[in-house]
Design a protein around this nucleic acid. Sequence first.
DNA 1: TTGAAATAGTTAGCTGCCCTAACTAACATA
DNA 2: TATGTTAGTTAGGGCAGCTAACTATTTCAA
Lengths: 134, 134
Amino acid sequence: MADRLHSAAIHLLRRLRREDDASGVSAPRLSALSVLVFGGVRTIGDLAKVEQVRVPTMSRVVAALETDGLVRRVAHAADKRVVLVEASAAGKALLHAGQRRRVAALAADIAKLSAAERRAILSAIPLVEKLAGR
Amino acid sequence: MADRLHSAAIHLLRRLRREDDASGVSAPRLSALSVLVFGGVRTIGDLAKVEQVRVPTMSRVVAALETDGLVRRVAHAADKRVVLVEASAAGKALLHAGQRRRVAALAADIAKLSAAERRAILSAIPLVEKLAGR
DNA sequence: TTGAAATAGTTAGCTGCCCTAACTAACATA
DNA sequence: TATGTTAGTTAGGGCAGCTAACTATTTCAA
C-alpha cells in the first residue's frame, strides 16, 4: 500500500510538473515563490527549512528567482548576515496565473470523474495528509 | 480539490523521500524497478510510457539499473529493435527490502487508521493514477 | 523487389535540482 | 580580543529530465 501510494503521488506530480513547465518556472522555484507570496518575507534559511532543502540549494533557487525579477532581497535591520527575500509584484502575478492554469487542467480531469469517484478521492486526501505527517 | 490533492501528493513524497534515500537507489529508478517487479517484462518504450518520461530518459534509467545488477536485458524473439527488460533476483530483493523499510517507517501512522480509512485510501489510488494520465 | 517511411533505442549535449565541502562575513561571548 | 557560532555563497559532483541527431530494424507500397 505504501508503495502504491508512493507511485501514485510520483505520477500525479510528474503530470502537474509538465503544466508548471508551461509557466517557464520550475516546480521547486514555484514552490519557494508560493511560500513567499502566501507566507510573506522569509530568510534563505527559513525557506530552506520549509522546502526541506539544504541552504545552498535554496540560495541558488533564490538567485534564479531574483534573476527573473520574481523576488527581491531586503536587508535585515539588525543582522547583516541575514538575507530576507520577498516576492515582487511580477512574482505574485506569475504565481497566481500559474495556479489558475494548473488547477484548471487538473480540475477539468476531476470533472470527468463520477461523483462517487470524487468522493473517494476527497475522503482519502486528509488521510494521506495525516500519513505524510501534516 | 485540485489544490488539496496537489498539496497532499507533495507532502507524502517529501515524507517518503527520506526512506527511499536509505535504499541507495533513487526514486525514479525504484519506480521503474517496481513496474518490472510487479508488472513483469516490459520494453524500454513501455516503461517510458508508464513512467511518463521520454524514451532517452528511460534508456538511461535502465542502463543504471543494469549497471547495479538490478535488471537484465532480454532479446525480443521476433523484433531485433526491441529491448525487453526484466527485474533480476537482486532487483526483486532490493525492492522488497525497500518496501519493508517504507512500511516500517509508516507503520505507526498506518496503525492509527481504521480499516475503513485504509479502504478509503486504497480505493482512491487508482483514481489518482487515472488523473495522472495512466 | 526495392526504396521510403515508420519504429525502437542509444548517444550527445543542455538545463535544473540536490547534495557536501570549503569558504567569507557578521555576530555573540567568555 | 580571541574563539566559536551562524547565515549565506561558491565550487564541484551526481542524477534526472529534455531535444536533436543518429543507428538498426521493420513495414509497406510503387
